[in-house]
Design a protein around this nucleic acid. Sequence first.
RNA 1: GGCCCCAUCGUCUAGUCUGGCCUAGGACACCAGGUUUUCAUCCUGGCAACAGGGGUUCGAAUCCCCUUGGGGUCACCA
Length: 491
Amino acid sequence: MAPESPVRVRFAPSPTGRLHIGGARTALFNWAFARRHRGVFVLRIEDTDAERNSEESLRSILDSLRWLGLDWDEGPEAGGERGPYFQSQRRELHLQTLERGLDEGWLYRHFTGPREPGAGGEARGPRELARFPDRDLDPAESRRRAEAGAPFVIRFKVPLGEEILVEDGIRGAVRYRSDEVEDWVAGRSDASPTYNFVCVLDDAAMGITHVLRGEEHLVNTPKQVLLYRALGLEPPAFAHLPLILGQDGRKLSKRTGDTAVEDYRERGFPPEALLNFLALLGFSIDDHTTVFGREELVRHFDLARVNKAGAVFDEDKLRWLSGEYIRSTPVPELAERILPWLRREGWFPEGELPDPERDRLERAAAAVRERIQTYGEAPERLRWAFETPDPDARALQALGQEGAAGLLEAAAAALEREAAFPPADFDAWARDLAAGLEVAAGRILKPLRAALTGTLGGPPLAEILGLLGREEALERIRRAAARAGGAAAAS
RNA sequence: GGCCCCAUCGUCUAGUCUGGCCUAGGACACCAGGUUUUCAUCCUGGCAACAGGGGUUCGAAUCCCCUUGGGGUCACCA
């Protein structure tokens, strides 16, 4: 792009629901494109569907964008010179332009009977495009009937026999013949303008230079290009992003799984991971870079590197990436991140944590860091530490082993004798203990683990001991010893 | 069905524009082995793809055509 025409892109969601994964990816690519070209990223709210709009949706969308770290330069709560940023606030311009189109003859009133329910709808044949006789109605007559109260919608009078060339930044040249474009509705019977109409007016008013949007909009493009022509305006550059597909290979929808960004947030995916994953859907930096952050994305973002084919949303890969980010998070920060989930279990109080609690939290974070892929998995991995464990089958077996009771008693006694808790060099301590009792280390360690956590997996014993604390640990060991096979201890 | 888009491992992709360096590279998943007191992490190895057919060319994953397959869209929703 020429330097004198700075890039201006926009993300234009309608506040009729939470931010969808597909929308987030569109926002991300627009954001990256703007940042890459030192341009402006605009957020515009398409709130023209009064029926379905909600304040709650708007809040949720802004929230999700911010959570992902996608900051907008102009838009709600950011302001800007090219506002308003709520579509509904441009109503005056929209209505005036509707009038103008009628006057200039590129729009016409289509007088409808008592609410023709959509001209077509179902599978339609080749030439049954929406063209209506009112197209050629005398303007004066048209006005007269309107004033007489006859119901009508306003349609775009698609010129016949024209070629419409869309130079798509991702797909290249896409050609349409205007004869294949229907006389689309620009103004509803209640006088409100429709999406295709206002979208163009707003993009023009806001000086949008590049429109990057989902492929489902590709077929809208010829309609919009025709409108730009009628308006005597130069259309922006278009680029249609490949669709995000569900496991079934179709456009991602609620049927296939979670589709809202908030769903992933609630399940405890780090925003960096979701962002990274989204960037990988239809884009790649090179032949080997998989894990990268926003800065790197911006540095490398290029429409030429965006794919044409749709991409299946693979949650396994998202989970892996998420685990990757968690493992690279420093313990104190990870502690902070998983805290909300642990609080939800009632394991930590609200408010500032006192030092002992903070220490416990960090030990907990360290214990799960390499064992979870989402923050949401932390509680299940840590339950044993905060609640009395219920030994599982394998743990029971370990506890029932010959001599388990005696070995546990011996371990408890040895632990009690140690000045430090847990022993400074746990491995050496365990070795010595095993040697003293003349058994293999595993004979002691397994039941110990079972007694402490109720399962045979989990973090290293030293960490378990540290997290539990001397008192609780000893109590668990003794309690388990009392229940373990005591008779066998003698043998 | 009309129109439009697309087509490399099961999945995300590199390579395609600017044919040869591709006996097609990386990642996820899966399988096997190793490290680890356990689980996990980590390391090593393995499995696995150019949809099919015609051209063009000395040479095609790369260019052209056809077929097949998949998707999008056909609202007074955006």
